[in-house]
Simulated assay, not measured.
Amino acid sequence: MINKLVSLAEAVSIYTGKCVAWLTLVMMLLTCLIVLLRYGFNIGSIALQESVLYLHALVFMMGAAYTFKDDGHVRVDVFYRNFSARKKAWVNIIGGVFFLLPMTLYTGYLSMDYVGSSWRVLETSQEPGGLPFVYLLKTLIPLMMISLIIQGLADIGKSVGVLQSSSNTLTEKGQ
Rank of each mutant, 00 (worst) to 15 (best):
residue 46 I to N: 03
residue 72 G to M: 12
residue 99 F to A: 15
residue 31 T to E: 07
residue 93 I to M: 11
residue 19 C to H: 04
residue 19 C to K: 09
residue 71 D to E: 13
residue 53 L to P: 00
residue 65 A to K: 12
residue 76 V to N: 11
residue 25 L to F: 09
residue 102 P to M: 06
residue 79 F to V: 15
residue 44 G to V: 13
residue 60 F to S: 11
residue 17 G to Q: 06
residue 56 H to N: 13
residue 50 E to A: 00
residue 16 T to F: 03
residue 63 G to H: 02
residue 98 F to Y: 06
residue 38 R to H: 06
residue 78 V to N: 12
residue 29 L to M: 14
residue 24 T to I: 11
residue 90 W to E: 02
residue 85 A to F: 13
residue 67 T to F: 04
residue 37 L to E: 12
residue 72 G to T: 06
residue 37 L to F: 10
residue 61 M to W: 13
residue 63 G to W: 09
residue 65 A to Y: 09
residue 65 A to M: 08
residue 94 I to Q: 06
residue 84 S to H: 12
residue 99 F to I: 12
residue 29 L to Y: 04
residue 50 E to V: 01
residue 45 S to T: 00
residue 24 T to Y: 10
residue 74 V to K: 10
residue 103 M to I: 14
residue 53 L to W: 05
residue 83 F to Y: 15
residue 89 A to G: 06
residue 17 G to V: 03
residue 64 A to P: 10
residue 32 C to G: 13
residue 92 N to Q: 06
residue 83 F to M: 12
residue 103 M to R: 00
residue 64 A to C: 10
residue 26 V to C: 12
residue 47 A to G: 03
residue 39 Y to T: 06
residue 74 V to R: 05
residue 49 Q to L: 14
residue 83 F to V: 02
residue 55 L to H: 08
residue 59 V to C: 14
residue 80 Y to R: 00
residue 55 L to Q: 01
residue 26 V to G: 08
residue 51 S to T: 14
residue 98 F to N: 07
residue 20 V to S: 01
residue 97 V to Y: 11
residue 100 L to H: 04
residue 36 L to M: 08
residue 72 G to F: 10
residue 83 F to L: 09
residue 86 R to I: 00
residue 21 A to I: 03
residue 102 P to Y: 15
residue 63 G to Y: 08
residue 25 L to K: 02
residue 35 V to A: 15
residue 79 F to K: 14
residue 23 L to N: 07
residue 70 D to G: 04
residue 16 T to V: 14
residue 28 M to H: 01
residue 98 F to E: 05
residue 66 Y to S: 09
residue 39 Y to S: 02
residue 54 Y to L: 06
residue 83 F to K: 05
residue 83 F to I: 00
residue 96 G to F: 02
residue 64 A to W: 09
residue 73 H to I: 00
residue 44 G to D: 09
residue 75 R to G: 05
residue 77 D to H: 08
residue 88 K to L: 01
residue 101 L to Y: 07
residue 71 D to V: 00
residue 98 F to K: 06
residue 81 R to V: 08
residue 55 L to G: 08
residue 61 M to Q: 08
residue 57 A to I: 08
residue 44 G to S: 15
residue 103 M to S: 13
residue 51 S to L: 13
residue 16 T to S: 11
residue 41 F to T: 05
residue 19 C to G: 11
residue 28 M to L: 15
residue 66 Y to R: 04
residue 17 G to N: 02
residue 62 M to N: 01
residue 75 R to T: 14
residue 53 L to H: 14
residue 40 G to F: 04
residue 56 H to V: 03
residue 36 L to I: 14
residue 89 A to D: 05
residue 87 K to T: 05
residue 52 V to G: 05
residue 77 D to R: 00
residue 97 V to M: 15
residue 23 L to Y: 13
residue 42 N to F: 06
residue 30 L to V: 04
residue 34 I to W: 00
residue 90 W to I: 14
residue 51 S to Q: 06
residue 22 W to D: 01
residue 50 E to H: 07
residue 37 L to Q: 15
residue 18 K to E: 03
residue 70 D to F: 07
